[in-house]
Design a protein around this nucleic acid. Structure first.
Length: 340
RNA sequence: AAUGACGGUACAU
């Protein structure tokens, strides 16, 4: 069973769910009964490939086969419910969690928190968090992330302090979950405190931490601090470039933003649809009508990005601000999308 | 041999 299961797990982990399932069937044909670990490996594979529904189907089959789910199975099935939008089934799992005594399991608890968070059931998620006997860094981070996503920024920062008082050390995941709260509150010293914490703990500044910092600094009004972070990052991905461009745009530095956009292309980083929101908003804020048109066209012609509502909105704003109301109206009437 | 948390967009007067 162990060798078969490790092979199934190997396929499943690397995104080959269908091959994993074939192997699973072969295993059964060979007269080996899959155990809870084999089933869970298969379910986890579907979850990781974003095939939540298929994972739930497998879970049903597993129960029909008379296999009792473990806490790890339950955690994966909750992920499957998140991936497939299955609120009702997730709630059933929650009651199973209570019946089977997995309530105090921190991995299951984290997944339940994510589940309720995903469905906007913040009270339920808080309830899970509150009655967790042991809270590790992942649970705290999940809770902080939920608060920031729902713009409970004061609570998020409070939790960030509380976890440290409880003796749990934040890691870079925690930091990138907490930084958007500082950005949302636009209180520079909160953000600087967390930046200081990053330095004290000697965490490196990778692309994820870097973009969270740059975004925070621009939203807190300090393009200078943002630029300092930007300059020390050696491997800049599309998000890093985008947040810096959007930061300049936000502060009306259109030229700077467009210069960065050129540099980004020279470095071979491909802009995506969000980059273009930044670029177009830079043109809009700086009144650069011609540049706006150029970049709007560049988006679809060079990068095969279909303009979305945000892009059209930027263009309308740009034309409107420039007093070109006829052109703006003409543009709106030609849009392939519903004006909002 | 199976398990959980992380970064960027247009919004509004």
């Amino acid at each position: 069973v162990v060798s078969w299961t490790s092979m199934v797990a190997g396929y499943a982990k690397n995104g080959y769910c269908d091959q994993a399932l074939d192997l699973f069937h072969e295993m059964q044909l060979a007269g080996i009964e899959p155990n809870v670990i084999s089933w869970t490996a298969l379910i986890a594979g579907y979850v990781h490939s974003g095939r939540g529904h298929d994972a739930l189907v497998m879970f049903c089959r597993m129960q029909k086969a008379g296999i009792t789910p473990s806490s790890i199975t339950v955690a994966n099935v909750l992920s499957a419910c998140i991936a497939s939008g299955a609120l009702k089934q997730g709630k059933e799992i929650h009651s199973y969690v209570i019946r089977s005594g997995f309530e105090s399991n921190v991995v299951v608890g984290t997944e339940l928190l994510n589940f309720y968070s995903k469905f906007g059931r913040i009270d339920n998620a808080c309830h899970i968090f509150d009655r967790m006997p042991e809270r590790d860094v992942v649970l705290w981070t999940g809770m902080i992330g939920m608060c920031t996503k729902n713009e409970y920024s004061v609570e998020a920062l409070k939790l960030f302090r509380e976890m440290q008082l409880a003796g749990v050390k934040p890691n870079t995941f925690t930091i990138t979950s907490a930084l958007p709260a500082c950005a949302h509150l636009a209180v520079l010293h909160h953000g600087k405190e967390i930046h200081g914490y990053i330095i004290r703990r000697a965490f490196g500044i990778n692309a994820i931490v870097g973009s969270a910092l740059i975004s925070m600094y621009t939203k807190c009004g300090s393009v200078e601090d943002a630029r300092r972070v930007f300059d020390i990052i050696n491997r800049r991905d599309v998000v890093i470039w985008t947040v810096m461009i959007a930061g300049y745009a936000m502060h009306g530095h259109g030229e700077e933003a467009l210069n960065l956009f050129i540099l980004m292309q020279q470095e071979g980083v491909k802009p995506d649809h969000i980059t273009f929101v930044g670029v177009l908003s830079a043109c809009s804020h700086a009144g650069l009508v011609n540049e706006g048109w150029q970049h709007f066209n560049l988006m679809s012609q060079e990068y095969q990005i279909t303009p979305r509502v945000e892009h059209y909105a930027c263009m309308v704003d740009l034309l409107g601000r420039a007093g070109r109301l006829d052109e703006a109206w003409d543009f709106i009437s030609r849009m392939p999308l519903e004006p909002s």
